[in-house]
């Protein structure tokens, strides 16, 4: 019993890079599944957000493990800024497309003209 507890205490810590990356990959998979399984543009954008959370957590975990968390923080802060731009532009595109087409089908974007 003590061996199991010791294993748990050692395994489930932030030092365990494998567990963190495993979770990051699961988050990424959830986001990609969300993007791939729906034609709704809002849900696609939601999938992008969930995937980016996975990437962000992988970056954070790598920075923590190699002892260079400040560098990881800097990259994550820049990533968050870019994420906001993507969401703002994506939502603008969605609202505009809905005003013109009356639905949120991503396949309707094929007909976009400048």
């Amino acid at each position: 019993m003590n061996e199991i507890l010791n294993f748990g205490a050692q395994f489930f810590t932030p030092d365990n890079l494998y567990l963190d990356w495993f979770t990051a990959v699961l988050l990424f998979f959830t986001g990609v599944y969300c993007m791939a399984s729906s034609r709704n543009m809002l849900r696609t954008l939601l999938g992008i957000e969930i995937s980016s959370k996975g990437c962000m957590f992988a970056l954070l975990s790598a920075g923590y493990t190699i002892g260079n968390i400040d560098f990881a923080q800097a990259v994550i802060m820049i990533m968050i800024g870019i994420e906001v731009v993507i969401v703002a532009v994506g939502l603008g595109l969605i609202i505009r497309s809905y005003a013109q087409k009356g639905n949120l089908d991503i396949l309707d974007l094929k007909n976009l003209r400048g």
Binding site: L60, Y64, I69, A72, Q73, I76, M77
Partner: peptide
């Protein structure tokens, strides 16, 4: 916060 990245 738990991993020591408060600014992020």
């Amino acid at each position: 916060f738990n991993m020591g990245a408060p600014w992020a």
